[in-house]
């Protein structure tokens, strides 16, 4: 089940309209504009809620995305790189978000650092195509994953705080 905080943040992210993938030429450009618009709104929402937890940007074609996410645990801010590609069958297929630095440090990850999502994610995504986009994948996928896995990895000593110089 999706927790209440995630549900609330999801409802505040604008939904997308255009069903287009990276090979759909002009329609893909339209989809990309919608993706960016939704992401901008989501980041603004997060800033307003004092929970600014990620940044993302893409290559010019919008097929490769990268950025950073942050998780605060015991007053320390942990930072991780994010990367993912847009699958050819997007948006029917959700992007596989990866945190490459954590590859091999948790069982909740596929090879290459791709995060394992809960059983709820795929059917929820499928029911909401094409309305859900990258912002929704972050809210439904990476956000909850960080909340569960990062504290666990910290407690186990698998990851340690890196002070910014």
């Amino acid at each position: 089940m999706v927790d209440e905080a995630t549900k609330k943040s999801l409802t505040c992210i604008p939904v997308l309209k255009t069903k287009a993938g990276p090979r759909d030429k002009d329609l893909w450009v339209q989809r990309l504009k919608e993706e960016y618009q939704a992401l901008i709104q989501y980041v603004q929402n997060n800033k307003g809620a004092d929970n600014d937890w990620f940044r993302l940007e893409s290559n010019k074609e919008g097929t490769r995305w990268f950025g950073k996410c942050w998780y605060i645990h015991n007053l320390l801010k942990y930072e991780f790189d994010i990367e993912f590609d847009i699958p050819v069958t997007y948006p029917a297929t959700a992007p596989e978000i990866a945190l490459p630095e954590l590859d091999g440090k948790t069982a909740k990850m596929y090879r290459g650092g791709k995060i394992c999502l809960t059983d709820h994610f795929k059917p929820l995504w499928a029911r909401n195509v094409p309305k859900f986009g990258i912002a929704h994948a972050m809210a439904l996928g990476l956000g909850p994953w960080l909340a569960v896995e990062i504290p666990d990895m910290i407690e186990k000593g698998v990851i340690s705080y890196k002070e910014k110089t």
């Binding site: 604008p14 939904v15 997308l16 309209k17 450009v29 339209q30 990309l32 504009k33 919608e34 960016y36 618009q37 939704a38 992401l39 901008i40 709104q41 980041v43 603004q44 800033k47 940044r55 993302l56 940007e57 893409s58």
Partner: peptide, 18 residues
């Protein structure tokens, strides 16, 4: 989302500036 009147380049720049 309402993307009328805004270009993709503008949106990319807006996201980068956040």
């Amino acid at each position: 989302v309402d993307t009328s009147g805004v270009s993709l380049d503008d949106l990319m720049a807006q996201m980068k500036a956040m």
